[in-house]
């Protein structure tokens, strides 16, 4: 096994709010090797975006970050602004849910692409233009030459996301973070964009983090999945292992609550009752305890640590894990 490209070590993010301190990310450890895809799933507000912003060093100003983010041998948390700017947009790239977050509405698509390329790759204007056209073609934009002169608002949502991806890929990044890249798009377009990301990731041997609330999106496309709940990683495993034999009651509940195509109409869904805890009022015990059907004893008193299951690389944080070896055998 090669050394990881990215290692997130004990990262915590706190945000001051009028209601008190909000623990958005609660001591997370993760790592990712070159050429691999990590999926991060969890409900709205569980800290997915804050975690990715901690990696990119793009947190809100008032946020307090602790821990280390080792990327390609450097701790991003301790880098100066100049070096960070150089890394972002070159080795470290990001695609957001709303492509307009990364696109500038008053600049043409050509200008935006060529600026990024020229700044980071030291190409002259004609070479940058040629490269821009190639990139737009690679992400499936028809008539790329004509697109260069257009503005983002002249493109559909799916097109804009393709363009944002083209810009993110333009400098051959080592790591691409895609934060809900398809949530705002229709299913047919969603499939096209996910295919595009997977294809470029393989071709470039790039590491990728896909953030989503849809277990379906990561199932077929991530090598490894981390499930987050209330700021913590509560289960982490190679994708196959996670879906075959999950140990965390929350993962089970999340999967069960999704309507399935093969289920007959009018079958009641196994819903998770209640909702996630208020992040400014951390619970003493397991954060999932108020909603967990296995909760008992210690669950309300202490926080379960993330620990290893029988499979290497499979971790879970639960006092009463499900589907353990002895149960499955019995």
């Amino acid at each position: 096994m090669s050394a990881p490209l990215l290692t997130i070590e004990d990262v915590a993010v706190e945000l001051p709010t009028p209601r008190g301190n909000l623990r958005a990310v609660d001591h997370v450890d993760l790592s990712l090797e070159a050429g691999r895809t990590l999926g991060i799933v969890g409900e709205s507000g569980c800290g997915k975006t804050m975690l990715s912003r901690a990696v990119l060093q793009l947190l809100p100003k008032k946020a307090k970050l602790t821990g280390r983010v080792m990327f390609d041998g450097e701790d991003l948390v301790r880098l100066d602004a100049e070096r960070l700017r150089h890394l972002r947009g070159r080795d470290l790239a990001v695609v957001f849910q709303d492509p307009m977050t990364s696109l500038n509405p008053v600049l043409t698509i050509g200008t935006q692409l060529m600026e990024t390329i020229q700044e980071h790759l030291e190409l002259d204007a004609p070479a940058a233009r040629k490269r821009s056209i190639e990139l737009l073609a690679a992400v499936g934009i028809p008539a790329p030459e004509q697109r260069l002169a257009q503005y983002p608002h002249q493109c559909s949502g799916g097109m804009r996301q393709r363009i944002a991806i083209a810009i993110a890929l333009s400098c051959e990044p080592k790591l691409l973070i895609a934060d809900e890249p398809t949530t705002a798009l229709d299913v047919t377009i969603q499939a096209q964009i996910l295919d595009l990301l997977a294809r470029e990731q393989r071709r470039r041997h790039m590491a990728m983090i896909i953030i989503t609330h849809d277990l379906g999106v990561v199932a077929g496309r991530a090598d490894e999945v981390a499930v987050m709940y209330a700021g913590r990683v509560v289960e982490r495993a190679p994708t196959q292992a996670l879906f075959k034999r999950m140990h965390m009651p929350y993962t089970e509940a999340l999967l069960a609550a999704i309507p399935k195509l093969e289920t007959a109409p009018h079958t009641p869904l196994p819903a998770i009752s209640g909702r996630p805890p208020d992040p400014t009022r951390p619970l003493k015990g397991c954060s999932f305890a108020p909603r967990c059907r296995y909760a008992a004893g210690r669950c309300h008193e202490a926080k379960p640590e993330l620990k290893g299951a029988e499979m290497p690389g499979h971790l879970y944080a639960c006092f009463h894990p499900i589907q353990m070896a002895e149960e499955v055998g019995a």
């Binding site: 799916g158 047919t188 499939a191 295919d195 379906g216 199932a219 077929g220 879906f243 195509l261």
Partner: peptide, 24 residues
Amino acid sequence: GLLLQAIPVPDPDVRPAESVATGE
């Protein structure tokens, strides 16, 4: 048919169909 193919299925054994839809 195309809509059905494009749905991401929460099962890692179901390989996503490669770019079923063309265009927008």
